[in-house]
């Protein structure tokens, strides 16, 4: 008996609905169809009237969630793909994200963003939007990389009083598995040392955690011990854990699947450079996706995003500087 990353997200939503009558789910095809990825499978039948299909209106879907939150509900809204959240962008960044600061009323909504590239998905079903939302004050941005985090962070996303952008990676949906759902959870907002090491620190999150862990593994036979940090949430960004790791290793590579300009990786390096410059034995490095739309063809896509072999090659450069 095992559980996938996607099943964990579904199970967490099921538990949230069962535990709290204020929770409801609203989004395109989330009702009896169970969602484009089946993240809400059977939930409409299990919770009648609380898991509802929405019209194709991302702006209105998020707007509805904000209004419902004002009235004390705790809505979960699904954007069918993270890419389409641009249509609801205004409601997310100007309505939901400003409500607490302006009016002292919290805005407990969860916006689920099926994120990241998958084979053949192309420019508009592949985007990683976490940096865009992290840029705006007033949002918590979660980027779970494991089945356990997908489950426990979804539960926490629903329970906290602030708007949460929940970036769930589509590439992990089906093939990432755990033996069972977790009973306990690491606190949200704290990064996790996914692999301990002494020679260099890789800071990463979401699907790139698994590419980075593979790269670390590949370097073992060359004698390198790489520490890999899973950020878990990109906002808040756990700078303390990053700095403590860099203090041990003296070398930093930051890996993400999003575009380079002004991204999470840029923020991590900026903070380490300004707050921990003296800890570095070499210039920090970063790996992002290329600065083009995400290409359709599998060969182009494979070369567009960092992979384990690219990460390992960059680490070799970093380690011999």
């Amino acid at each position: 008996m095992s559980v996938t990353y996607l099943e964990a997200i579904r199970a967490a939503q099921e538990k949230a609905l069962a535990d709290d009558p204020r929770v409801f789910i609203y989004g395109q095809d989330v009702g009896s169809f169970g969602g484009a990825f089946k993240a809400t499978k059977n939930l409409a039948a299990e919770f009648p009237g609380r898991v509802m299909d929405a019209p194709l209106s991302e702006d209105a879907i998020v707007g509805l969630a904000v209004g419902a939150a004002i009235e004390g509900a705790r809505p979960i809204v699904e954007m069918q793909f993270a890419d389409f959240s641009t249509v609801g962008f205004n409601q997310i960044v100007n309505q939901a994200a400003t409500l607490y600061y302006r009016t002292d009323i919290p805005c407990p909504i969860v916006v689920r963003l099926p994120s990241g590239g998958t084979l053949g998905a192309g420019p508009f079903h592949s985007q990683s939007m976490e940096a865009v939302y992290a840029h705006y004050p007033g949002l918590v941005v979660m980027t779970p990389a494991t089945v356990e985090d997908a489950y426990s962070m979804m539960l926490e996303a629903v329970s906290i009083d602030d708007p949460v952008i929940f970036c769930e990676h589509k590439l992990l949906y089906y093939h990432l598995k755990a033996d069972k759902l977790p009973d306990t959870a690491q606190p949200v907002g704290k990064a996790r040392i996914a692999r301990a090491g002494r020679d260099a620190t890789v800071v990463t999150y979401s699907a790139m955690l698994h590419e980075s862990l593979q790269a670390a593994e590949d370097l073992v036979e060359e004698g390198w011990q790489i520490e890999v940090i899973d950020l878990r949430t990109v906002k808040p960004l756990d700078t303390d854990t990053i700095l403590a790791s860099v203090a041990r290793t003296g070398r930093l590579l930051v890996v993400g699947e999003a575009w380079p300009w002004g991204g999470v990786n840029a923020e991590v390096i900026s903070r380490v450079a300004t707050e921990g410059f003296g800890l570095l034995d070499a210039a920090p490095m970063r790996l992002n996706a290329r600065d083009t739309p995400v290409p359709y063809h599998p060969d182009l896509w494979a070369a567009h995003r960092p992979t384990a072999s690219v990460i390992a090659a960059r680490l070799r450069q970093l380690l011999t500087q």
């Binding site: 707007g63 509805l64 004002i70 205004n90 009016t103």
Partner: peptide, 30 residues
């Protein structure tokens, strides 16, 4: 004063329409 049903507009026109709809949706759910 949103807690009193008096919602605070943002500057983006039209954005308040779904928000008021959402408030009503939550009331109906209750």
């Amino acid at each position: 004063r949103p807690r009193e049903g008096y919602y605070a507009m943002i500057s983006h026109l039209g954005a308040l329409v779904p928000v008021v709809a959402g408030g009503l949706y939550a009331r109906r759910l209750r």
